[in-house]
Design a protein around this nucleic acid. Structure first.
Lengths: 148, 148
DNA sequence: AACATACATTTGTATATACAATTATTGTAC
DNA sequence: GTACAATAATTGTATATACAAATGTATGTT
């Protein structure tokens, strides 16, 4: 994936600009492959992330605010995202009795099962995305990512 | 930006998965700052990219197909994106007389002026995004990006 | 010339997202 | 205890995006 080739430009770019555009190209490629991987399961990347967060709760419920804070990609309307997961039977929603402003969201057994099969596909996808890297390169890449 | 801290997890992740999630977090941060930077100019990131491509044509028109191929973030409906830019007076559209299936899209003088001021803001934004990197780190980061 | 096929763009429609306004509940000051 | 502010979630609405179907134009075959 060479930036200049893709942009069909031959002029030298500022390193900062080149990096930003390069990052956009890489993240776009990532989004495409992730969506494609999840498409057979009929969930979006955000829905998948919500399911992962809920599983991480280990039985403890999560409310909408917590979900929003933990989501990899912030989005403005978690209510409707949860609605979709409820329609699929992957999560359930109850109002919190201690504080009735809050709601409690749980992953269902059906949701956990579905998530397990998504995981297998996603792990494969993750491996494929980083297939050209050595382990040392990946470690260093993660160190560099922390600088953003 | 530490992955485990953000995801509030303490268990060790596969390096491939950690990298993919880390990349999502970084690209999300990038998207946010880019949108914020362009917001005062009332253009989206895609609209900005189209304007940059058209300027790069140096007077030569671009058709929709070319635009779509060169766009950093692919999108499915370039027609309506160009519509918006026409409404703002930043580009003009004519049907190609040699091949009337094609359209020819040009950036206008008004569009070039607007783009110039966006550039200044975006350059500043780019610098800020990579402010914690040394030049060597950035060079290497770009090399690593090519492996995706 | 008539037909099928390929090409470039546009349109229709369903879904997703951003942002603001609203509702319901709780906490706090007086 | 009433009034007001703060919190949590939902709803309304405008815009954006994904995907498929439709339109208009050009090209190749017989």
């Amino acid at each position: 994936m060479n930036v200049e080739e893709i942009l069909k430009t031959n002029k030298k770019m500022e390193l900062s600009k080149r990096t930003v555009i390069h990052l956009m190209l890489v993240s776009n490629k990532l989004n495409e492959s992730t969506s494609t991987t999840l498409k057979p399961f009929d969930v979006s990347v955000q829905q998948f992330n919500v399911l992962r967060i809920l599983r991480g709760q280990k039985g403890k419920p999560a409310n909408l605010k917590t979900l929003n804070e933990r989501m990899v990609t912030k989005m403005s309307n978690t209510t409707r995202l949860v609605d979709k997961l409820i329609l699929k039977g992957y999560v359930k929603r109850e109002t919190c009795e201690a504080n009735r402003r809050k709601i409690e969201i749980y992953i269902t057994t059906k949701g956990e099962k579905a998530l397990s099969s998504m995981d297998i596909a996603m792990n494969k996808n993750d491996e494929q995305i980083v297939q050209n890297f050595t382990e040392e390169e990946l470690e260093y890449l993660n160190v560099l990512f922390d600088k953003f």
